[in-house]
Nucleic acid binder design. Structure first.
Length: 557
RNA sequence: UGGGGGAUCGUUUAGUGGUAGGACUAUGGACUCUGACUCCAUCAACCCAGGUUCGAAUCCUGGUCCCCCAGCCA
């Protein structure tokens, strides 16, 4: 029986469904990033929304690079955005750029001038700011506001022709300097930038501003629902003003929703860039970063990210999603489909004194609940490694693992009993001497006796040394940088721990880049896509397993 | 009274005048060759004050608190 996932029914989908009742059209959406940085999990929310809404309604969704500011944008970002989108599993109906419309946009600007609704302003940046007024005080009209249409046309043509320096003139919409909405106080719609553009080269030296470009690009593309985040709600009157004033093919509807915020993380492009530039992380693709490229490297699956975006919901509420929701998404995606193997992160040598031979081969299934995933051989041996934390000389209550005189099960192998502990001159435990029960081969005792603990292990002689990188949240504070503090002071100094000498089972010898495994009792791990090689395997911990022992242990203390 | 947006379990979300429901977390239990997974159970919420109504999370009035806006950024 197939249970098809229910389609979410958030306020935006309700609006669209309502629209569809009265109007007949194909739903068209767009994801419009500015190529000035890498995509992060917050963008994923918008991506999923736009592409899914279109797909649910048999519509189209464009990828549109909002590339109107050549001083911030470049091809590196363009390529990374395309790659991230493809990785997430989305295919855009068409690739567009705001810059594709520069010619049309220029035409619309001239239209506006002819309508007497735009003028060229000679005020300096500082003056424009002063004339704009403040949040509580109205602005004043620019002295250049009443220039004639002919003069404006001529000046704008000269702007375009490159006859002026950057900042000398701007084109402004003539709306209302007294508007309580600052966006309507004669907003600048074109500025001069003598800068080459990655798409149009040297063709233009005037570039349109966001407010002018976005609504018109939406209209040109026939976008039906222009979905954006809450901070643009104040811009909607301006969005509508351009479309009402100009003769456009259609009038898309802008709808705003709350952007994602995740606790113990930062999401703003500025802050992420600061982390990269100050080398507090290794790059945009550092596995601790909330960027899609970082999360991909860490080992997150596209499915888990899409599932997460669905789980967090879609409203206009200011929210702070718990990082646990993300962890839940990745665990539940990985659990059914990830092979189990054994890896010892912090090895402790164990000699099985009564084991008669050097080694033998055992068979271990890849998944306890899914036999179709098959099995692999693992080599058991006289000398093995177990996890340091699986042995305690003085075990507290409810500690089920190894301790002097105690018996535990080695997963898929035998029961062993700890006979003695060997320490170095500093008193550090360096080795355990154990005995095994040959009758318990395979992991169960014929006499029916039970052991509470089962621990993982690898053979000393057969294990492969690997580097394992353990990641924790990047910040110690739930909301880094809140109340004016420098967000960098909230960095978690233990957000990465590198274990250069971990031991993984031999079957991992051919582990390929990006492959994911569950290291039993430890967590989910992914072969690093940058640093891992056949000579030196490097694994990233994606997420730990749920650990109820850690809770008991904590409660004990 | 500058404008705009928002307040429901710890977190998130449903609800559109008629039993406040789900998910995550937490807690307890069952199962277990992963202290995993799975399953069961439990705890737990309508910002406040009035009003309308047989009945209000929902409608009205008045408050309170939070977020966003003064780039030639998007």
């Amino acid at each position: 029986m197939q249970t098809s996932k229910p389609i979410p029914n958030d306020f935006i989908r309700q609006i669209i469904a309502e629209d569809l009742k009265t109007k007949i059209y194909q739903v068209v959406t767009r994801f419009p990033p500015e190529p000035n940085g890498y995509l992060h999990i917050g963008h994923a929310k918008s991506i999923c929304l736009n592409f899914d809404v279109a797909a649910e309604n048999g519509g189209r969704c464009y990828l549109r690079f909002d590339d109107t500011n050549p001083s911030k944008e470049n091809l590196e970002y363009v390529e990374s955005i395309k790659a991230d989108l493809a990785w997430l599993g989305y295919t855009w109906t068409e690739l567009r750029h705001s810059s594709d419309y520069f010619e049309q946009l220029y035409g619309y600007a001239i239209e506006l001038i002819k309508l007497g609704k735009a003028y060229v302003c000679s005020l300096t940046g500082e003056e424009i700011k002063q004339y704009r007024g403040t949040l509580k005080e109205p602005g004043q009209n620019s002295p250049y506001r009443e220039r004639s249409i002919e003069e404006n046309l001529a000046l704008f043509a000269q702007m375009k022709a490159g006859e002026f320096a950057d900042g000398e003139y701007v084109l402004r919409a003539k709306i209302d300097m007294n508007s309580p909405n600052i966006n309507l106080r004669d907003p600048i719609i074109y500025r001069i930038k003598h800068l080459p553009h990655q798409m149009t080269g040297d063709k233009w030296c005037v570039y349109p501003m966001y407010d002018f470009t976005h609504c018109l690009s939406d209209a040109i593309e026939g976008i039906t629902h222009s979905l954006c985040t809450l901070e643009f709600a104040d811009h909607r009157p301006l969005y509508d003003w351009f479309l009402d004033t100009l003769a456009t093919p259609c009038h898309p509807q802008q709808i705003e929703f709350a952007r994602l915020s995740l606790n113990y993380a930062v999401m703003s492009k500025r802050k992420l860039q600061e982390l990269v530039e100050s080398k507090l992380v290794s790059g945009w693709n550092d596995p601790r970063m909330p960027t899609l490229t970082g999360m991909r490297r860490r080992g997150y699956t596209p499915e888990s990210i899409r599932d997460f975006c669905e789980k967090i919901g879609l409203t206009k509420n200011n929210t702070n999603i718990e990082i646990g929701v993300l962890e839940n998404s990745i665990r539940s995606d990985l659990d059914p489909k990830t092979a189990r193997v054994m890896a010892v992160l912090n090895p402790l040598r164990v000699v099985i004194e009564n084991y008669p031979t050097e080694s033998e081969q055992l068979e271990a299934p890849y998944h306890p609940n899914d036999p179709s995933m098959g099995s692999r051989p693992v080599t058991f041996a006289k000398v093995i490694y177990i996890e340091q934390e699986d042995f305690l000389e003085e075990p507290p209550k409810k500690f089920f693992r190894l301790a002097p005189g105690r018996e535990v099960r080695l997963r898929y192998a035998y029961f062993i009993t700890c006979q003695s502990v060997i320490k170095d001159t500093n008193g550090e435990i360096v080795e355990l001497r154990c005995t095994y029960d040959p009758a318990t081969k395979g992991g169960s005792a014929p006499d029916g006796r039970k052991v509470k603990g089962t621990i993982h292990w690898v053979s000393e002689a057969h294990a492969i040394t690997a580097e394992i990188r353990l990641y924790d949240r990047l910040f110690n504070q739930s909301n880094p940088g809140v109340s004016g503090t420098d967000f960098k002071t909230a960095l978690n100094p233990n957000s990465i721990e590198i274990l250069p000498n971990s031991k993984v089972e031999a079957s991992l010898a051919n582990a390929q880049i990006d492959e994911r495994y569950q290291f039993e009792r430890q967590g989910y791990f992914c072969v690093d896509n940058i640093d891992s090689s056949a000579e030196k395997l490097v694994f990233n911990r994606i997420v730990t397993l749920r650990d109820s022992w850690a809770k008991i242990d904590k409660a004990n203390k």
